[in-house]
Design a binder for these strands. Structure first.
Lengths: 345, 345
DNA sequence: TGTTAGCACTCGATAAGTGCGAGTGCTAAC
DNA sequence: GTTAGCACTCGCACTTATCGAGTGCTAACA
């Protein structure tokens, strides 16, 4: 499957052109634009070869050629030139990140927003899920009669308002007991049995309605083991309407539907595994509906334990070089900035 | 501007029909469908009158009629029949609300989701902004070296991770000082000067880098006065692609653009003032881009202090009766459920 | 042997022409 | 006041014609 240098150049030129115009590329256009010193006839011959090899597709006899999934794949693997992101954009990115570094959860949202503004495609990001964080502190605060806020501090804060029949005094005692028993433990290590043990202790030391106690323990357990409810954010979904591939409203609607369903997005983003930036082109995507899109995604880490994913969704003729460069930049800048601000645990 | 009973009936029939079909309504259709016992010719005469009065518009000579903004307005004010929401939908709504009642912030998101699933239109909701909540407690928790989490508990929890040069001991003392000075106060009452006063006290009692101290105080001030960053959620935006009014992708894109800009949404939603459900039809909308949409919005309260807004955005030919009924239902159900679970402060 | 000019051919897209039918306004009869 | 009837309008869908970008192939050329 080795391609002659000339074929490579021609394929590259065709794909570059197609990425720009979204119109089938003819031989004349290539012979004129690129200075390969070849006539359109020669290019035509080469294009016929490239089509036979599976890199190009001719939508109809007598139309120009369009890259096939394999063509894009070859392009991404070996043809694509490095894209240089402008200094201003980099500077802007840096300042945005610096401004948000104190709020990890927000950082990630911004990373997604930045990615979509750099690339002009739709992005999907997941907030870094904190894996098994150590419980630093548990707090119970009465915020109204019969209303208590439970606060669990790990590296982040989870809180939940509970409507529970308890008074100030019992509330304070309970907080003390919870702290004594739970702080310092990993959230994942806390089993329902453990909670039941604590419940027994509480039962002995405090006077509470049994019902209230059970309720509280349920809340505590739920809050601690809460699945962090991996937050997912979609940015710039509307960009889909911009490219001619989706001028068909029906199609666009199906994509939007897909993007509004968090379950889909979760699956989409969870399938990213490796450390490097990865593209899935057309049929390489697992989802039927994305088969004429491409997705480019990566894992990035926020410090030692947390990690998040970011995916860019665009038409197959996306500007891969730019997207790769953008993700790379974001990942590096986040690393840099966190390396600077965080000193391990 | 009084309309004869017959004209009212005809106008109502036309609008009902148009809401259903999105196609200009002809005289024959009305004379057949409604059993008014009138021929199409008579209806035609009445329609000509209604057009002259400004309630109907004829897109082209020899096409059926379409309601004008004034027509819709009249319909909403005096013609619309009450819509009865199905029992199953009501039951479903109730169970969803019950399941979320312990988490106010989530309740609101669900209210929006429910509204859009009931009406099948796009909804915009704002989280209830807590106005001037009393500070119940302030906490500082070391979560790593040089990393402190500041937690401010009002009726909700605000937290912020600060990267600050401080040790365990100073951290605890600082928390104590902050609590002593700030808890019990209204968040809005805390001025920057007040924070500076505290800063002086801290300066005397603790040994901290002056830089770290200033940083901390900034964080504290920011976190407390944080504009609650009124969260805004958009649900079911894609429904816009469903109605023929927006089969033009360009138009749809402009709407999506609008919906992705939180600033717009804020303005949109803030303009809702009254207590009752209100419709803005076509040109009545303040935003250029919504001039061929209608919005129906309301304020709803979550208990005594918090209040949120919810707006439904749809085509002018929206099912107003259904939308009104849906919002009404949601508002009532929320009231009911909160009345049950909350017992004042 | 590789390259290129030339030419006949294909076929989608656009424009122009045509007929249909839903709907109208008006008039005259009931 | 209501309605049947009729001539008229005009958007829409459909057909047909034209155009042109692009192709494959052949033959000539370096």
């Amino acid at each position: 499957m080795d391609l002659s240098d000339r074929k490579r150049k021609i394929l590259q030129a065709i794909i570059d052109e197609y990425i720009g115009t979204a119109e089938p590329v003819g031989s004349r256009a290539i012979s004129k634009k690129e200075n390969l010193g070849l006539s359109s006839a020669t290019i035509r011959n080469e294009m016929a070869d490239l089509e036979e090899m599976g890199y190009l597709i001719q939508p109809h006899t007598s139309s120009g050629r369009v890259p096939s999934d394999e063509g894009y794949r070859f392009y991404v693997n070996s043809l694509m030139r490095k894209y240089q992101i402008g200094m201003e954009a980099v500077a802007q990115l840096q300042s945005m990140l610096v401004a948000r570094v104190s709020q990890l959860e927000k950082l990630i949202r911004y990373a997604g927003a930045i990615a979509s503004s750099l690339t002009e495609y739709t992005t999907v990001v997941t907030a870094p899920k904190e894996q098994n964080g150590k419980i630093k502190k548990i707090d119970l605060v009465m915020i109204a009669s019969r209303t208590v806020m439970l606060i669990v501090v790990t590296r982040t804060v989870r809180s939940q308002v509970m409507n529970i029949d308890i008074d100030d005094e019992n509330c304070a005692k309970l907080a003390e007991i919870l702290n004594k028993n739970l702080s310092g433990l990993m959230a994942d290590d806390i089993s329902f049995e453990k909670i039941q043990d604590i419940q027994k202790e509480v039962e002995h030391r405090l006077s509470l309605h049994p019902k209230a106690l059970i309720d509280i323990m349920h809340f505590v357990y739920d809050t601690i083991t809460e699945d962090s409810e991996t937050e997912i954010y979609v940015n710039n979904a509307r960009s889909i309407l911009k490219y001619p591939e989706y001028s068909d409203v029906e199609k666009a609607e199906r994509i939007f539907s897909f993007l509004e369903d968090k379950e889909n997005l979760k699956k989409l983003v969870e399938s990213v595994s490796g450390d490097s930036i990865e593209a899935k082109i057309g049929k390489e995507n697992d989802f039927e509906i994305l088969q004429d899109c491409s997705t480019v995604s990566m894992n990035y880490s926020l410090g030692d334990r947390a990690s998040g994913k970011i995916a860019v969704i665009g038409p197959k003729r996306m500007n891969y070089a730019k997207v790769f460069a953008s993700l790379d930049l974001i990942s590096n800048e986040i690393d840099k900035i966190l390396g600077y601000y965080m000193n391990g645990e």
